Simulated assay, not measured.
Amino acid sequence: MNLDEVGRLALSHEGVKRKGTEARPAWYVDDRLVVRRLDPTSVVIRAGFAARERLLADHPDTFGVPPRFESHMMVVVELDRADPAAVTRAVAEAVELQRRR
């Protein structure tokens, strides 16, 4: 996967908007972060702690949690080895997590 694909995936959800900068684009729903470029090869996706643990267990080659993100409700996706179906699910879950109810 690449950043453009992740962006299109995020924007396919109702209410998601692109924000951030050209160098660090991010996608939000209801002004809450869904996904953001972390560096040239990875993005972070919002995930509840239980969902994050499931993603890590089910797709260890796609998702990771560096020490600096351990206390945050986020998971890191390494784009060059990402499973598109797993990322699709993670983004959809992030959108629902972040929607204002």
Rank of each mutant, 00 (worst) to 15 (best):
E22M: 07
V44H: 10
V34E: 06
A51Y: 07
A92R: 13
L3S: 01
A92V: 05
P25Q: 01
K17E: 15
E96V: 11
R100M: 14
K17Y: 08
R37E: 13
R24C: 11
D61S: 02
V87F: 06
E5F: 04
V75C: 04
H13E: 10
V34L: 09
E96F: 00
L38A: 12
R89V: 14
M1H: 13
L11K: 07
L33H: 10
D61L: 12
R18V: 03
L9G: 02
A86G: 10
P67S: 04
P67C: 11
A86N: 02
A47P: 00
E5K: 14
R37D: 07
K19M: 15
V35I: 00
H59N: 08
V6I: 05
R18D: 06
I45H: 07
A82H: 08
V76I: 11
V6R: 02
R99E: 11
E22D: 08
T41G: 15
L97I: 12
T41R: 12
A26F: 06
R89N: 09
D58N: 07
R100K: 12
R81W: 03
E53M: 01
D83F: 02
L79T: 00
G64H: 08
A92D: 14
R8Q: 15
I45S: 03
L79H: 12
V29L: 07
P67T: 04
L97D: 10
V6K: 06
R46W: 04
A50H: 11
V87N: 03
R24A: 13
L79G: 13
E14R: 13
V65M: 06
M1C: 12
L97N: 13
A47G: 02
P60Q: 07
D30M: 12
P84S: 14
R46M: 07
D30F: 00
P25Y: 00
G7P: 02
D31F: 02
M74A: 15
R101C: 14
E78Y: 14
D83S: 08
D61A: 09
L38R: 15
D31I: 11
A57K: 12
V77K: 03
G20H: 04
L56M: 04
H13K: 08
T62M: 09
S12W: 09
